[in-house]
């Protein structure tokens, strides 16, 4: 092999140059700092359900404050809390409240002296869906949902077992994965215990898989966040839920006024209080979040918080972090 030394040097030089550009590019992407006072990096992790709202807020906040970077991840509510309580992130997105007695969550936060504030930023209506070809099921009670998704639900469940009068065809069950807050919330309110659920359902962390599964199977049933139903309402049929006071369909109105029970659930962010007191950009970000969450939640498919409830959250935040 006798490649000329010159060619070798040139190739090596090119590689170094490329590496240099790639590394140097990290320095400052937009020179237009517009004299903004705020600077820093705010790291956010947590629920994939809350993620679209956080993404929208982070996008607009960074447009307004070019000195602040807001990288966002989605490890799921539980995975996010584990990082949050180690002090690795500044804010955790959550689709359920923190588990105070969990080793990785509340206890870890206490051990590491991490104080937090729980702020509700939107409402989601867990929507139970079936295939549009399913004409018999229009409304299910909590008890009937428990028969489908409860831990004791038999492997060969037929629709006629759910309610007498339904046809004797198999119920093909789909549901979100066990790491999701959606799964935790549903099992808690329907089955009475977090994580207690049937082993006979197809689970997926990707809600689009659930949408596809139900859209292609006349006997299927699943549940997920309202945004996924709203985007796919042409392929799916939403089931009304009877929580003890009659059948209620999930709509923005019923989710908002909490008459869609018990599957309306709050969505939260958990800012690290200690860091927010010390870092003005983090405080400003949470202020910005609360100020814009209503408009942005609606834009990305969630139900905005009623004004009085939102004001309560703003007051709680202001009191906690201090003027």
């Amino acid at each position: 092999m006798t490649t000329t030394p010159k060619a070798r040097v040139a190739a090596f030089g090119l590689l170094i140059a490329l590496a240099g550009t790639a590394c140097a590019s990290g320095a400052s992407p937009s020179p237009a700092s517009s004299g903004a006072a705020l600077a820093g990096t705010i790291t956010i992790d947590g629920s994939s359900t809350v993620y679209p709202i956080t993404e929208a807020v982070a996008e607009d906040f960074q447009l307004a404050n070019s000195g602040v970077r807001v990288p966002t991840s989605l490890s799921g509510t539980g995975g996010g809390f584990k990082k949050f309580c180690k002090g690795e992130t500044d804010i955790n997105d959550a689709s359920r409240p923190i588990k105070a007695d969990d080793d990785g969550e509340g206890k870890a936060c206490a051990t590491n002296n991490i104080e937090y504030v729980e702020l509700q930023i939107a409402i989601d209506g867990l929507t139970v869906v079936v295939n549009p070809a399913n004409t018999f099921a229009t409304c299910l009670t909590v008890e009937e949902l428990n028969r489908i998704y409860g831990p004791d639900s038999p492997r060969e469940l037929k629709w006629s077992d759910v309610r007498a009068g339904f046809p004797a065809v198999a119920v093909n069950r789909f549901m979100p994965g066990a790491d999701s807050g959606t799964f935790d919330y549903f099992t808690e309110v329907i089955n009475g215990e977090v994580d207690a659920a049937t082993q006979n359902a197809t689970q997926s962390e990707d809600d689009n898989v659930l949408v596809t599964g139900v859209a292609g199977d006349a006997n299927a049933i699943s549940f997920f966040g309202y945004a996924y139903y709203a985007e796919n309402s042409d392929k799916l049929k939403a089931i009304e839920v009877d929580g003890g006071s009659g059948c209620v369909a999930p709509t923005e109105a019923t989710i908002n006024d909490a008459s869609y029970r018990p599957l309306s659930r709050p969505l939260f962010i958990y800012p690290d209080l200690g860091k927010a007191k010390a870092r003005p950009e983090l405080k400003a970000f949470v202020d910005f979040f609360l100020e814009n969450t209503s408009a942005l939640s609606a834009e990305v498919g969630y139900v905005a918080l009623p004004a009085d409830l939102l004001q309560k959250e703003k007051d709680e935040w202001a009191a906690a972090v201090g003027g």
Binding site: R69, S73, L74, S75
Partner: peptide, 22 residues
């Protein structure tokens, strides 16, 4: 990379030695 903390929403060019990337 999902496990070792790659972010999903990064609107700046990553610095290889510190901070988030995707």
């Amino acid at each position: 990379l999902l496990l070792i903390g790659a972010s999903v929403f990064v609107t700046f060019l990553p610095n290889p030695l510190e901070g988030s990337y995707t």
